[in-house]
């Protein structure tokens, strides 16, 4: 509000969330982001979803299937739920995802904060 050139006001949490999601999906060994309870509610209808999702809400966080991004004082924090390919070593995949998201956040001008990766499933890649 006070300074329009601060990166924090140009880059919102939704953008960071989609950046993190895209980065994860481009990392070899990631099968998908894991739908959470919210993904399940999405199928129940828009009303149930609206009551849960608040894009750009007051706490500066944005949630989508499998990814939550929060921006606080110019620092972006990311929580990511992923499923990995059993042909890869899950921890190596998760560390690569962390590293790449860290780099990509710093390219936005924001400070990369903690990046939490949750491996919810390890399974064979569908044919």
């Amino acid at each position: 509000m006070s300074d329009p050139y601060l990166p924090g006001s140009l880059i919102n949490s939704q953008l960071i969330a989609s950046l993190a999601a895209r980065t994860a999906l481009e990392t070899p060994g990631v099968l998908r982001l894991e739908p959470t309870l919210e993904g399940f509610l999405a199928r129940l209808g828009p009303a149930a979803l609206r009551s849960l999702r608040h894009p750009g809400s007051q706490d500066g966080s944005y949630r989508h299937d499998g990814v939550t991004a929060t921006i606080n004082d110019g620092t972006a924090r990311v929580d990511l739920d992923i499923a990995t390919d059993i042909a890869y070593t899950a921890l190596t995949v998760a560390e690569a995802v962390q590293q790449r998201i860290h780099e990509n956040i710093s390219h936005t001008g924001l400070t990369p904060g903690r990046i939490h990766i949750h491996i919810l499933s390890i399974e064979p890649r569908p044919e």
Binding site: A94, H116, I117
Partner: peptide
């Protein structure tokens, strides 16, 4: 260094 990794 960048955060935690959890597995279900």
């Amino acid at each position: 260094d960048h955060g935690t990794i959890e597995i279900s």
